[in-house]
Computed example of a mutant assay.
Amino acid sequence: MMQTLPIPPFFDPNRVGEIWPVPYQQRATDAKAWAATHGIAPASDDSRRLCLLLIDVQNTFCLPGFELFVGGRSGQGAVDDNRRLGEFIYRNLGQITTITATLDTHQTMQVFHPYFWVDAEGNNPPPMTLIHYDDVVQGKWRVNPAVAANLSSPRDLQEYALHYTKTLNDRGKYPLTIWPYHSMLGGIGHALVPAIEEACFFHTIARQSQTRFELKGSNPLTENYSVLSPEVMEDAQGQAIAHKNTPLIQTLLEFDAVVVAGQAKSHCVAWTVADLLSDIQATDPALAQKVYLLDDCASPVVVPDVVDFTDQAEETYQRFAAAGMHRVQSTTAIADWPGNI
């Protein structure tokens, strides 16, 4: 296994929390030279294949001042996470076969955005409102009539709203959360954080391994915290409105190891890993040992004086570890991680 590499001089940990254009042509030149200097072989030569799965490392979640910045309890969570993540990618460039990056992808008229709902006076719910099944039954919140003209199905959106919130309730999921408009397709918030985008690009050139991007969350009728499965997949009549991402699950499990980082630890990371674990347990529970969770490269959602999901995230990660997954630190050499990696 290749040894830990130095961090390229262009990586500036003080700029991880900023927006700037990646100098692609220069980095392509740098990456080729870096590979030659350090004897970095093409990813196709890897005898043990490692996938780094980056969950929603996007401006909308990772930069202060953006719509859903994941600050954690420290207030700088995602910024610190991405500094460590960038360093992890560069140090382990020769050992990461493929980087797969998910992109939360939304438009205005979606079930978890304010415009989708109105109260009796026609007001949209403020961000962070929780809409329960009983709220819809009692008419506290109903689907905005303006939305119906923009969606082709289902025909009765109010009936669907009842079905959707009841399904979340019956399955013991979080109630529907109205999030601020975020990860808007075509907007700056949708893009990867520049420092991590640069690291992915550098990896692509140095290892001759294309970064794989997985879009999630564009379905207007369901939340999609997990890249592997939406929260609700059928309408009130049992007709499919969304599908499980079986191809990605199969692709991930073909690797010898899957390393997971990203935002938020309490939501999109937790949901994705939970879905992966469910598939693993239905196939071969021993496969859980392939999964490594970068504990110091993910933070929970914390909105001071509103919500704090830190404890829930910790409990979830403990459950993952009990199932056989490994909780590791980005600063520990991969060679010293548990398991046969």
Score class of each variant (00 low, 15 high):
residue 1 M to S: 10
residue 3 Q to S: 11
residue 7 I to A: 02
residue 7 I to L: 04
residue 8 P to Y: 10
residue 20 W to S: 07
residue 27 R to F: 15
residue 29 T to N: 09
residue 30 D to V: 09
residue 34 W to N: 00
residue 67 E to N: 11
residue 68 L to F: 06
residue 69 F to R: 07
residue 86 G to A: 06
residue 91 R to H: 14
residue 92 N to K: 05
residue 94 G to L: 01
residue 109 M to A: 12
residue 127 P to L: 06
residue 130 L to K: 15
residue 131 I to W: 08
residue 132 H to W: 12
residue 139 G to R: 14
residue 143 V to C: 11
residue 145 P to R: 11
residue 146 A to L: 15
residue 148 A to V: 07
residue 152 S to I: 12
residue 156 D to K: 12
residue 157 L to R: 01
residue 160 Y to G: 07
residue 161 A to D: 06
residue 163 H to A: 07
residue 167 T to L: 02
residue 168 L to W: 05
residue 173 K to N: 15
residue 176 L to R: 02
residue 180 P to V: 08
residue 180 P to G: 09
residue 184 M to Y: 02
residue 188 I to N: 07
residue 190 H to P: 00
residue 191 A to C: 12
residue 191 A to I: 04
residue 194 P to H: 08
residue 199 A to H: 02
residue 203 H to F: 07
residue 217 G to D: 04
residue 219 N to S: 12
residue 219 N to P: 09
residue 220 P to Q: 06
residue 227 V to D: 00
residue 229 S to K: 12
residue 238 G to A: 07
residue 241 I to D: 01
residue 255 F to I: 01
residue 257 A to I: 07
residue 261 A to I: 13
residue 264 A to H: 03
residue 269 V to Y: 05
residue 271 W to R: 06
residue 273 V to Y: 02
residue 275 D to T: 05
residue 285 P to M: 09
residue 286 A to C: 03
residue 287 L to D: 01
residue 287 L to K: 06
residue 297 C to Q: 06
residue 301 V to D: 00
residue 304 P to D: 06
residue 307 V to Q: 04
residue 310 T to C: 06
residue 314 E to T: 12
residue 316 T to F: 01
residue 323 A to I: 06
residue 327 R to M: 15
residue 332 T to A: 13
residue 334 I to N: 00
residue 335 A to Q: 13
residue 337 W to P: 01
residue 337 W to Y: 10
residue 339 G to Y: 02
